[in-house]
Amino acid sequence: MSRGRSAGSRAAPPADTALLDDVAAGALRWLDAMRPHFRLPADVTTDADPNLTLKPLGELAELAQVIHTLHPLAPLRDAAAELFAFAWKETRDGELFAELVRGEPVATYPVELYGVFARVGLRHPGAEELIEATTALRRWRVAREDHTRTLGVLNAELRIGLPPHADAADVLAHTGLGMRSEPWALDRKAAYGITHDVFHLTDWGRAPGRLPDRLADYLRLWLPAWTVSWAEERLWDLVGEFLAVAACLPGAPYDAAGWAEFAAARGAGDAVPESGEPPGPDATPGERFTACYHSTLVAAFAATLARAAVGRSGAGGPAPTSIAGAARGGGPAAMTTLTGSEKSP
């Protein structure tokens, strides 16, 4: 163990806002440059692999909207807003969702994706008519294998204005988080389950107060162990998700060592690899996108939540020195670059 980790349960250090802003700005810059790879292909509703098309675009929309809403710095909010608008445009102003529901009437993902946009008033009447018809079925209420996913569906229903198909507290009780799984018994899938339980429950960090105290305390206790454990495995997207979850807790405990390690995992162009090392120089842009898009989105998202929490809790502030931020030209300089790269709408 060579990590300079603080003594754990003691008072959390102040947040390094320069580092957080550098991570968020760098990630948004990279994501913006990757727009061509987020574009949906012509066969998106038929032959294309949704994991390579709809999933990245849906994540981009979900997280860009959070960043647009919560980030305290206007240039970053603006950059996120443009990415969100780009994603809506890719859905052809929502026409995509009507096509997806017609193709797979009982699939949940079109409803979940539509909810991201409906939440802020971007709606498509045709898609909505279909969704109302499919979600009213008893078939829609059949229990799903994955209760975490059901929390996501419930959140989508709330966003769209549909009646909830199940009792959220009951569903939560059956998740890894609600069950308060033994913290040493988590495997990778269970760990992702817990982070997403939190994201769905808190509407992706917008409503951290929805976390029951008992579960917040569970997370406060074990997040430090999980963050270290998965950083040792170099699974960076999960580390980023844990850092985001920490920002949803009361007082938003700042994990200085975890953030430093996560930031140091970034590669060229500030992309964060999903695991291990950043893609090598021989990687094609497509390979870079696949290897980094998810974890880089998580980086922007987590840095935004942690940054917003500084204002919320009234604690934190710039650390006296920020080697990582200074070396990377973080802070205002990075934002200028970001703003400069943005094209006029």
Binding site: G8, W184, A185, A225, S229
Partner: peptide, 16 residues
């Protein structure tokens, strides 16, 4: 006096 920290160490050790 560091029970929570030891408990985290238990978690990490089992995961490893």
């Amino acid at each position: 006096a560091r029970t929570e920290d030891l408990a985290r160490g238990f978690v990490r050790a089992v995961r490893r």
